[in-house]
């Protein structure tokens, strides 16, 4: 049967089977994003601290996690940790792996955002009599957040696409369901194209939002 014939006959059934994996995709995305947002901030603050003792581990962490593939990192956590006693579930390994990877990238976004605003604004705030902490809270961070929103949104899109690799450690998300379905029905073309469309339905709207944020940031600057 041709592509369109299969699509017509089994399309809805395939869609239903594939979407069974969607909750796992979304869950891994949300959890690793949360992990990366929090841990990334922590790493960024270490990176920005005036003490070498704190900066060096942060820099090492960032360089290493950005310099190695996310897939390897997830594998190390899932297959490697049992060696020392921890047996993570596939989902846990995926979230921690993608989260650690993401934190490395996010920390650089945080750092760029804060440094971009830092100098003159801080000086102006201090000369007005604010404490550094007040300046940070009312002047620096609000501006930094607005600067960071577009790259953070772009990062989120990348993270969502990265969840497609975690089937390799056994998480039953979209790709995993797709492969199962193909094993059963041998309809690789229709199934994988459908998976692609499902991903596009998520990433393209996100990209639009990111573009709008970028435009409003430029207008504001």
């Amino acid at each position: 049967m041709s592509f369109l014939e299969v699509l017509n006959a089994k399309g809805w059934y395939f869609l239903g089977r594939l979407l069974e994996g969607l909750p796992w995709t979304v869950a891994s995305f949300v959890c690793s994003l949360a992990f990366a947002l929090v841990f990334g901030l922590f790493v960024a603050l270490l990176r920005l601290s005036p003490w070498r003792l704190l900066r060096i581990p942060a820099v090492t962490y960032i360089e290493f996690f950005r310099g190695t593939p996310a897939l390897v990192q997830v594998f190390v956590i899932y297959f490697g940790l049992p060696d020392i006693g921890f047996q993570p579930s596939p989902f846990q390994a995926a979230v921690v792996g993608l989260g650690l990877n993401g934190a490395a990238y996010l920390s650089e976004i945080y750092r760029a955002g804060i440094e971009a605003i830092h100098r003159g604004q801080m000086e102006a705030s201090l000369s007005l009599g604010m404490t550094p902490a007040r300046a940070m809270r009312y002047i620096i961070l609000p501006q930094a957040i607005r600067t960071m929103l577009p790259p953070m949104t772009n990062f989120a899109i990348v993270l969502l696409k990265d969840t497609a690799i975690i089937f390799a450690v056994g998480v039953s998300e979209l790709m995993s369901n797709a492969r199962e379905l193909v094993t059963e029905t041998l309809q690789s073309a229709v199934v994988y194209v459908m998976v692609g469309v499902i991903y596009l339905c998520m990433t393209i709207p996100m990209a639009r939002i990111a573009a709008r944020l970028e435009r409003s940031k430029q207008a504001w600057q």
Binding site: D162, M175, V195, G196, T203
Partner: peptide, 8 residues
């Protein structure tokens, strides 16, 4: 750009 590399 919107598709994960694995899917491509």
């Amino acid at each position: 750009r919107g598709l994960p590399i694995v899917v491509i």
